[in-house]
Design a protein around this nucleic acid. Structure first.
Lengths: 133, 133
DNA sequence: AAATAAATGTTAGGTTTTCTTACATTATTT
DNA sequence: AAATAATGTAAGAAAACCTAACATTTATTT
């Protein structure tokens, strides 16, 4: 499968949006980053930009915290699970994508969006929900 | 399909994100809003908040402009297509969803995001549970 | 009980982003 | 040549976000 991995790692959400989507405070989100549980990108002006993957991880962190696990434990868990994932064959494609330039990323994204119109009438929504799978 | 419609109308993107995703200038985006081609929400502080549907429409507008159609034409096109859509049976569900509270919206979205995590890259609840009993 | 540590709240001062409004520019159309 | 449509640009104000520091709460340890 093509750009789904790419889409989920696109850094596009402001911290305000993430707060709403996760019901976490800015303090909490920054704290988790400080402890290296998430690694949001930054804008030129140093504002944090979160991806869907970041949001998923934040929700995971929240849930595990509610289960009484502390940040150290959660961090270790994430590491372990991530290691397991590293033995997956999806890695090649991912790595290739990760090396693309910003420009190329946008082009790729746009092309994918454009192709969405093939399904329905040309004016029907391009399927942006592809960002969400 | 369940809350996909809901997800697509959640206002979460800043204008900066939309600029990157669409390669439109802020001026262009605001101009299209001024001419009632899109209707982004606002934050308490009056910042625009765009949904996936807004982004789709912006991409559509961009494409039609490049085909030489002017804004008036595009607006009419959108209206017509929207009318057609209004004769769809998806309407019931949508309307119901639209009446949900903010709280409920966030909960619903969160659930969906967790489900969407099927595509690896963050650990999921199911994945973690085997570590705890 | 007091001290420590972990997680989060709050405040302050500074920077970036977005807002509206107004005027300028570039093509097209009349 | 004048008018219109679409976009660029600049200015000043307000909102959102940044880091850093100190405060609070809760749980654990001594």
């Amino acid at each position: 499968m093509g750009g789904s991995q790419l889409r989920r790692s696109l850094p596009i959400f402001s911290i305000g949006s993430v707060m709403q989507l996760t019901e976490l405070s800015a303090r909490q989100i920054r704290y988790y980053e400080e402890h290296e549980l998430i690694f949001p990108q930054r804008t030129e002006g140093n504002r944090r930009l979160f991806s869907l993957n970041d949001i998923d991880r934040l929700l995971e962190i929240k849930e595990l915290l509610e289960q009484g696990i502390n940040l150290a434990g959660i961090k270790k868990l994430i590491e372990v699970v991530h290691q397991q994932e590293t033995q997956a064959e999806v890695k090649q494609e991912e790595k290739a994508k990760r090396d693309l330039s910003e420009q190329e990323l946008r082009k790729l994204l746009r092309n994918e969006l454009m192709q969405a119109g093939k399904h329905r009438s040309s004016l029907r929504q391009g399927d942006m929900s592809r960002f969400f799978h």
